[in-house]
Amino acid sequence: MAVVRSRRARRRIGVVLSYAAMLTIVVFAIFPIVWCLLVSLKPESEIVSAQMTYWPRTVTFENYVAIWTRSNFPTLIMNSVVTTTITVAICIVVGTLASYAISRYRFRGRSALMLGYLVVRMFPAVMIIIPLFIVMRGFGLLDSRLGLALAYTTFLLPVFIWMMKGYLDAVPPEIEDAARVDGSSRIGAMVRVVLPLVLPGLVATAVFIAIGAWNEYLIALMLTTSTGSRTWPVGLQLMVGEFQLPWGSLAAGGIISIIPVVVLFVLVQRVMVKGLTAGAVKG
């Protein structure tokens, strides 16, 4: 009896410790984000007061109003939306076709190609940025949203193809065979059967790519020079550096710009994690 009780007690202690450890890690991970949110809700006077307040004494949205109405932040966000959309559109069209071919066909050079898509990631960003700058200048694409989207495709298309291939590999080829025997062509089977089945994966991949494009800073810094195409990370950082953006506005801007990231992530989190870790499980 005593043994049973002590074992149960030990298990209970184990559970409590597990929760304590889990909470510690979660707090560590999201405290900065929560802090940013809190700061964004404080009035300027409270932020700069020598007496640190953790919970805002007065909650205000003036920071959000300020960054949205008294700077070019809406334009920056719009540029980012357009650039991201173009990037994702290119990746979906070009990348889906390529990943389908790689997943479904066995042809000479297939593994070399897959490896090639990966090695491309080894090139330092700087190494690509300079030539891109020169080439884009030549084509008049410098400081344009299309040019920036094309630049993003350089590093996001290979990621898209890799991730999509994982989702496509999970669709049994026999289902496609069945559709072909049933009267579909290859492309018909792809459109009517394979794509509907990988749709969740396609969405997750697209979101992953979209977040990558949305967040990108370095290439945008190099390739955009005016408000016409500048994306929000560049714009926000410029405001911080040159105009001594007040903390409240900075925090509000940060929160506004990560809301889409967080929302999209939450929506497709499960499928996306599966896709990102497919390789890890296979070893």
Binding site: P172, E174, I175, D177, A178, A179, L197
Partner: peptide, 14 residues
Amino acid sequence: GIAMVFQSYALYPH
């Protein structure tokens, strides 16, 4: 003009 039945059935899950 053929029809085929597969070992794994290969029904369209969607």
